[in-house]
């Protein structure tokens, strides 16, 4: 591009314009070609086969119609109770799922909150401590819950306790990073005032930094709870408690209507938590302020 801007006489302006257009077209073609090559390579590695895709479609339709229960209007009650034959056990497992999510969010949130003051660049008592805290958060949120769960099931035995620990670690990392970023954006004057009054580091954080991020932190934590309910619903697949195991078994054993029954209960749980949490978040932080997924 010329530094003097486009020329003023019509002919050279047209030439200039054509040159720019050509360059842009060339760039778009190049980007498109690279994208196509990458996608083609990915499709090869991912074994994408259009024939399989079209063959899979009707099978998918069949599967969906298989898992749906037969419910006739004339004996509606009997059909529903047959569909929901395991309701008591499923509700207990759904409760487990909720417990895993709540406990994981609460304890992971507590760790994240305390860690965030170390991880914030403007508040860290020592630089090296801040670096360590940031690394812990990074590893915590990079490893998926289910991988932690695989490991913890070995160490702590099968059951929801391993799931709670898995959720705690991941929540610690994810929430710790977000809260540390909130901490980095606070007004530093109250913190300086607290130091000037002779507060030590911990007291300054409690009295000057925490009140500034408390609404943000609460809203992040509630949002995390919504995510964790979804995460906790699959931990059972690796034996870490909750409804996941039952769903896994139902799908593996082709107990079709059980699949849809459990899915329905799960969707209801997620919906209740989402609506409650959204309501609370709006109360905490006011409408319009949304947290990114």
């Amino acid at each position: 591009m010329s530094t003097t801007g486009p020329p003023h006489d019509p002919e050279s302006f047209a030439a200039h314009h054509a040159r720019l257009r050509r360059r842009q077209t060339l760039r778009n073609v190049a980007i498109g070609a690279v994208a196509l090559v990458v996608l083609w390579g990915a499709a090869r590695v991912g074994e994408v086969d259009p024939a399989q895709f079209w063959a899979g479609f009707p099978r998918l339709g069949n599967y969906i119609s298989d898992i749906l229960p037969v419910i006739r209007l004339e004996h509606f009650g009997a059909d529903v109770s047959e569909w929901m034959w395991g309701l008591d056990r499923w509700l207990a497992l759904i409760l487990d799922t909720l417990v895993i999510a709540v406990l994981g969010t609460a304890l992971g949130g507590a760790l994240a909150l305390s860690g965030s003051f170390f991880a914030a660049r403007n508040l860290a008592p020592y630089e090296w401590l801040g670096a360590i805290a940031r690394r812990i958060h990074e590893i915590g949120r990079t490893v998926p819950e289910i991988v932690y769960a695989l490991i913890f099931v070995y160490a702590f035995g099968i059951g929801p306790f391993a799931g709670v620990l898995a959720i705690i670690l991941h929540t610690w990392g994810a929430l710790g990073k977000l809260t540390a970023e909130a901490n980095e954006n606070i007004d530093m004057r109250p913190v300086e005032a607290a130091y000037a009054c002779g507060c030590n580091w911990a007291t300054s954080m409690r009295l000057a930094a925490f009140p500034q991020i408390a609404p943000n932190f609460l809203s992040y934590a509630l949002f995390r709870l919504e995510i964790n309910v979804r995460a906790a619903s699959v931990l059972g697949i690796v034996g870490a408690g909750g409804i996941g195991q039952e769903l896994y078994l139902a799908i593996r054993r082709f107990e079709y209507t059980d699949v849809s029954a459990i899915l329905l209960l799960l969707i209801i749980l997620v919906a209740i938590i989402d609506i409650t949490s959204e309501h609370l978040r709006h109360m905490v932080i006011g409408r319009g302020a949304e947290v990114r997924a």
């Binding site: 979804r230 995460a231 619903s233 699959v234 769903l247 899915l263 799960l266 969707i267 989402d274």
Partner: peptide, 11 residues
């Protein structure tokens, strides 16, 4: 509302 792992199981 449904986790990706559940979709994976179903598919």
């Amino acid at each position: 509302g449904v986790d990706v792992l559940i979709f994976a199981l179903i598919f």
